[in-house]
Amino acid sequence: MEIQGKLVIRHAPPSVQQYLALRVQAGLSPMSEEGAAIGLPRSIFAVTLFEDDVLIGMGRVIGDGGCFFQVTDIAVQPSHQGRGLGKIIMREIREFLDTLPDKAYTSLIADGEAARLYAQFGFAPVAPRSQGMAFKR
């Protein structure tokens, strides 16, 4: 746990309720309570930012633990955006990524202007060589 002023940084996933609420508040797609309850404990790495015990930011790394990883759930509460919290989240994630096995492949899906943030931490577009795709039921 790192404390910067009133900001508390934890390397642990949020609760299911906190996760679901922050995703919606930050404009990410809603997830199911069932899915969050299964997925959050399986995070390979998670960072959460709290002010006064209120979750204001989060990010996770998921994957197989050896070869493939994905950065996901980067979210900051709208009332706290513009304060560099996304950079703090990505700094913590990048420090974790630097510990992964050689040649591990880490990907993410960048929505809109978020690509500029991720580029600051070493992420680059893979198109046209590769194209991100998603499956929806």
Rank of each mutant, 00 (worst) to 15 (best):
residue 2 E to I: 08
residue 5 G to I: 11
residue 7 L to Q: 12
residue 8 V to C: 10
residue 9 I to H: 10
residue 10 R to Q: 08
residue 10 R to W: 04
residue 11 H to N: 13
residue 13 P to C: 03
residue 13 P to R: 07
residue 15 S to M: 02
residue 16 V to G: 03
residue 16 V to S: 03
residue 17 Q to W: 02
residue 18 Q to V: 09
residue 18 Q to N: 10
residue 20 L to K: 01
residue 20 L to C: 06
residue 21 A to T: 10
residue 21 A to S: 07
residue 23 R to P: 00
residue 24 V to R: 03
residue 25 Q to D: 11
residue 27 G to Q: 00
residue 27 G to P: 04
residue 28 L to K: 01
residue 28 L to W: 04
residue 29 S to E: 02
residue 30 P to R: 01
residue 30 P to E: 02
residue 31 M to R: 04
residue 32 S to M: 00
residue 32 S to L: 01
residue 35 G to R: 00
residue 35 G to N: 05
residue 35 G to F: 06
residue 35 G to M: 01
residue 36 A to G: 01
residue 36 A to L: 00
residue 37 A to S: 03
residue 39 G to S: 11
residue 39 G to P: 01
residue 40 L to G: 05
residue 40 L to N: 00
residue 41 P to C: 15
residue 43 S to L: 08
residue 44 I to P: 07
residue 44 I to F: 09
residue 45 F to L: 05
residue 45 F to T: 07
residue 46 A to F: 12
residue 48 T to Q: 10
residue 49 L to N: 05
residue 49 L to W: 01
residue 49 L to E: 02
residue 50 F to I: 06
residue 51 E to K: 14
residue 52 D to L: 10
residue 56 I to M: 07
residue 56 I to C: 02
residue 59 G to N: 14
residue 60 R to D: 05
residue 60 R to I: 08
residue 60 R to Q: 14
residue 60 R to S: 07
residue 60 R to P: 02
residue 66 G to K: 09
residue 67 C to R: 14
residue 68 F to A: 10
residue 68 F to G: 09
residue 68 F to Y: 06
residue 68 F to N: 08
residue 69 F to Y: 11
residue 70 Q to I: 10
residue 71 V to Y: 09
residue 71 V to D: 06
residue 72 T to V: 12
residue 72 T to I: 14
residue 73 D to P: 02
residue 76 V to I: 09
residue 76 V to N: 11
residue 77 Q to W: 03
residue 82 G to H: 06
residue 82 G to S: 02
residue 82 G to L: 01
residue 82 G to Y: 04
residue 83 R to Y: 14
residue 83 R to N: 15
residue 85 L to D: 14
residue 87 K to H: 14
residue 87 K to S: 10
residue 88 I to S: 02
residue 90 M to S: 03
residue 90 M to K: 06
residue 90 M to D: 05
residue 90 M to A: 07
residue 91 R to H: 08
residue 92 E to M: 04
residue 93 I to T: 14
residue 94 R to D: 15
residue 94 R to E: 10
residue 96 F to P: 08
residue 98 D to Y: 13
residue 98 D to V: 15
residue 98 D to C: 13
residue 100 L to I: 11
residue 100 L to Q: 05
residue 101 P to G: 12
residue 102 D to W: 01
residue 103 K to L: 15
residue 103 K to Y: 11
residue 108 L to Y: 13
residue 108 L to N: 13
residue 109 I to R: 10
residue 110 A to C: 15
residue 111 D to A: 12
residue 113 E to W: 08
residue 113 E to S: 12
residue 115 A to R: 09
residue 117 L to S: 07
residue 117 L to W: 09
residue 117 L to G: 13
residue 118 Y to D: 06
residue 119 A to G: 15
residue 119 A to H: 14
residue 120 Q to Y: 09
residue 120 Q to E: 12
residue 120 Q to K: 14
residue 122 G to L: 07
residue 123 F to K: 12
residue 123 F to I: 10
residue 123 F to C: 04
residue 124 A to Q: 15
residue 124 A to V: 11
residue 125 P to V: 09
residue 127 A to D: 12
residue 128 P to F: 05
residue 131 Q to L: 13
residue 132 G to A: 14
residue 133 M to W: 03
residue 134 A to G: 00
residue 137 R to E: 00
